[in-house]
Amino acid sequence: MATGGRRGAAAAPLLVAVAALLLGAAGHLYPGEVCPGMDIRNNLTRLHELENCSVIEGHLQILLMFKTRPEDFRDLSFPKLIMITDYLLLFRVYGLESLKDLFPNLTVIRGSRLFFNYALVIFEMVHLKELGLYNLMNITRGSVRIEKNNELCYLATIDWSRILDSVEDNYIVLNKDDNEECGDICPGTAKGKTNCPATVINGQFVERCWTHSHCQKVCPTICKSHGCTAEGLCCHSECLGNCSQPDDPTKCVACRNFYLDGRCVETCPPPYYHFQDWRCVNFSFCQDLHHKCKNSRRQGCHQYVIHNNKCIPECPSGYTMNSSNLLCTPCLGPCPKVCHLLEGEKTIDSVTSAQELRGCTVINGSLIINIRGGNNLAAELEANLGLIEEISGYLKIRRSYALVSLSFFRKLRLIRGETLEIGNYSFYALDNQNLRQLWDWSKHNLTITQGKLFFHYNPKLCLSEIHKMEEVSGTKGRQERNDIALKTNGDQASCENELLKFSYIRTSFDKI
C-alpha cells in the first residue's frame, strides 16, 4: 500500500482533458527560462521544448504516446526543470519506465491550478516501474492521483506527508504495488545497510526511497516546507523545498512566496507586481503582455491589467481597466465587458449561442446573426445582446428569417469595421425574408467608422429604411451602385405612401 494514499474509496472516473512563447529569463536562482504550460502528445517531438525550461508557468501534460519505446527515452533528460506552477499529468506514455532521468531536479509542483483537485496525476502508464522524482520536495496545493499503472512499484516507500501538507485526498490505487509483488529495495538494503531515512506512518517504520538508488530526502521537522541542505541544516524561511546553503534567500532552489532578481522575498516591493503567484514583474512586463494579447485571437491570451499590486489576466467583477495605466478602477454604474472572439468572429444561430455573449459591452471581433427560429426570440436576444455598444469588426445579418427588427441591439452605437466582410463591408444584410426595420432612427444613433453597407434580398425592408441608415451611420456616399439592390429590397412591402385627393359631386333626387 502506498504510504499516505487512500484505498478502496469510491472515486469519480478520471477524465483526461485534452506555445513556446518565453516569458522571460528567471535569473540567477533558476538555471534556465520560464516556459508556458505545455500539452505534449502523440510523439516526442515537442518534448524537446523543455530543454531550457527551469519553470513551467502553467501545467505540463505528457500523454497518448503509443509508439514510443524505452530506448526512445534513454537520452532524454531535462535537468534544468525545477518547478511547475500548476500540475504534472502523465497518461498512456508507452515505453517510459521512470522519471528519474527525465526530470531529475523537479523540486516543486505548486498546484496553482489543479487537474480535478490533483497536482500530480500518473494514470495508465503501462510501462512505468517507478516514479523516480527523487528531488520532489513540495506539492504546495492539491493532491496526488496514481492509478492503474500495472508495473509501478516504489510507492509504499514514499512518505507523501513530507511532500504535501495533507495526504487525506491522495488516491493511489490499482498499481502493481497493490499486489505486494514489488519487493522494493532501498539503497544499501541488499548489503544489509540502512542508507535512507525511515519514518513512521500508520504504525509502520519504513525506509523512504524513490528507487533502488535514490533515497527520499527527509528534512528535520523544524525546517517545515522550506527544505534543508545535504547536511540537514534548514533553508531560509522564504525558500521552498530545498537550498544549497542554509538561511540564505539567494540560495533557495525555489521560493515559498515570490522570486525577485535572484532572491526569494515575502512580497513584491514597489515598483514590482505579483505575477502568477510566484514571481515579481515590473510595469513594462505587464504592459507588454497586455499589448501582445490586445489584437491576438490565441486562446488563453489575456490583456493583463494591474489590481491590488498584482498583474492579473482581467479586472475583477465591479472594476474596469483604465487604459492609460492598466489599473483596475471601480465602475460607475454597470461595468464594461470586452469579449474577445477566439477566431475573430462568432455566429449567433440560437439563443444558446447568444447567451455566451451575455453582459458583453464591447465585441472584439465580428458578429454573424443567422437565426431561423426560436421561442420568445426578441426578448431572449435583447437579454443577451442588448448591452453590446461596440463591435470592432463587422455585423452580418444573414438568412435570419425569424427577425423582424434589429432593435434587440438596443445599445449598439459603434461598428468600427477594423475587419470587413469580403474585404469591403462593415454591415452586411443578406436574404432576411421578414426583416422590416433596422432601428427606430428617431431614437437610435449608430456610427460606422469604416467599410460599406450591403443589402440584398431583404424583400420587406424598404429602401427608405436603408437610406436612413446611410445618413445616420455616416456611410452615405461610400456605397457603390450594386451594394444596395434596388429590386430585391422592399419588393414585397408597401414602401411608397402617396396622399390621394378626392373630389365629389353631391346629387339628390331633384338636383344634379
Rank of each mutant, 00 (worst) to 15 (best):
residue 30 Y to L: 14
residue 32 G to W: 05
residue 32 G to V: 13
residue 33 E to G: 12
residue 35 C to R: 01
residue 37 G to P: 06
residue 42 N to V: 07
residue 43 N to M: 08
residue 43 N to A: 05
residue 44 L to D: 08
residue 50 L to M: 13
residue 50 L to P: 00
residue 52 N to R: 06
residue 55 V to T: 04
residue 56 I to T: 01
residue 56 I to Q: 00
residue 59 H to M: 08
residue 60 L to C: 04
residue 61 Q to L: 07
residue 61 Q to K: 14
residue 63 L to E: 05
residue 66 F to Q: 06
residue 67 K to S: 06
residue 70 P to Y: 05
residue 73 F to I: 13
residue 77 S to I: 10
residue 79 P to E: 09
residue 80 K to M: 08
residue 80 K to N: 12
residue 80 K to D: 02
residue 83 M to N: 01
residue 83 M to D: 02
residue 83 M to S: 03
residue 83 M to T: 05
residue 86 D to P: 00
residue 91 F to I: 07
residue 91 F to Y: 14
residue 95 G to V: 02
residue 96 L to P: 01
residue 101 D to P: 12
residue 103 F to T: 01
residue 103 F to S: 00
residue 104 P to G: 01
residue 105 N to V: 04
residue 106 L to F: 02
residue 107 T to W: 05
residue 107 T to D: 02
residue 108 V to Y: 04
residue 109 I to S: 00
residue 110 R to C: 08
residue 111 G to W: 01
residue 115 F to S: 05
residue 118 Y to F: 06
residue 120 L to W: 01
residue 120 L to P: 00
residue 121 V to S: 10
residue 125 M to T: 05
residue 128 L to P: 01
residue 130 E to I: 08
residue 131 L to S: 03
residue 132 G to A: 11
residue 134 Y to S: 09
residue 135 N to K: 14
residue 135 N to E: 05
residue 136 L to G: 01
residue 137 M to I: 03
residue 143 S to E: 07
residue 143 S to R: 06
residue 143 S to I: 03
residue 144 V to G: 02
residue 144 V to K: 00
residue 145 R to V: 12
residue 146 I to C: 05
residue 147 E to G: 09
residue 150 N to W: 05
residue 150 N to F: 04
residue 151 E to G: 14
residue 153 C to I: 01
residue 155 L to Q: 12
residue 156 A to M: 08
residue 157 T to C: 07
residue 158 I to F: 09
residue 165 D to Q: 05
residue 165 D to P: 14
residue 167 V to A: 11
residue 169 D to C: 04
residue 173 V to H: 15
residue 174 L to C: 13
residue 177 D to N: 13
residue 179 N to R: 13
residue 186 C to W: 02
residue 188 G to F: 11
residue 189 T to D: 04
residue 191 K to S: 08
residue 194 T to N: 14
residue 195 N to D: 06
residue 195 N to Q: 09
residue 195 N to W: 12
residue 195 N to F: 10
residue 195 N to C: 07
residue 199 T to S: 07
residue 200 V to G: 04
residue 204 Q to T: 05
residue 204 Q to N: 13
residue 205 F to V: 10
residue 206 V to Y: 03
residue 207 E to A: 11
residue 212 H to K: 15
residue 214 H to K: 01
residue 214 H to F: 12
residue 215 C to G: 13
residue 215 C to V: 12
residue 216 Q to A: 15
residue 216 Q to K: 05
residue 216 Q to I: 04
residue 224 K to Q: 06
residue 228 C to T: 02
residue 228 C to K: 03
residue 231 E to N: 03
residue 235 C to K: 00
residue 235 C to Y: 00
residue 238 E to G: 07
residue 240 L to Q: 05
residue 241 G to E: 02
residue 243 C to Q: 00
residue 247 D to S: 02
residue 247 D to A: 07
residue 248 D to Q: 05
residue 253 V to D: 15
residue 256 R to I: 09
residue 257 N to Q: 09
residue 257 N to W: 03
residue 258 F to D: 01
residue 259 Y to H: 11
residue 259 Y to A: 12
residue 262 G to F: 03
residue 263 R to I: 00
residue 263 R to N: 00
residue 264 C to Q: 01
residue 265 V to H: 00
residue 267 T to S: 04
residue 268 C to S: 00
residue 270 P to D: 01
residue 271 P to E: 02
residue 273 Y to G: 02
residue 273 Y to L: 10
residue 278 W to M: 02
residue 284 S to E: 15
residue 286 C to D: 01
residue 287 Q to H: 06
residue 287 Q to L: 06
residue 287 Q to E: 11
residue 288 D to V: 07
residue 295 N to W: 05
residue 296 S to Q: 15
residue 297 R to V: 08
residue 298 R to Q: 03
residue 299 Q to C: 07
residue 300 G to H: 14
residue 301 C to R: 05
residue 307 H to R: 02
residue 310 K to G: 12
residue 315 C to H: 02
residue 316 P to K: 03
residue 316 P to V: 03
residue 317 S to M: 10
residue 318 G to A: 03
residue 319 Y to C: 04
residue 319 Y to Q: 09
residue 322 N to A: 11
residue 325 N to V: 05
residue 325 N to Q: 12
residue 326 L to W: 03
residue 327 L to E: 13
residue 328 C to P: 00
residue 328 C to L: 00
residue 330 P to D: 13
residue 331 C to N: 06
residue 336 P to S: 07
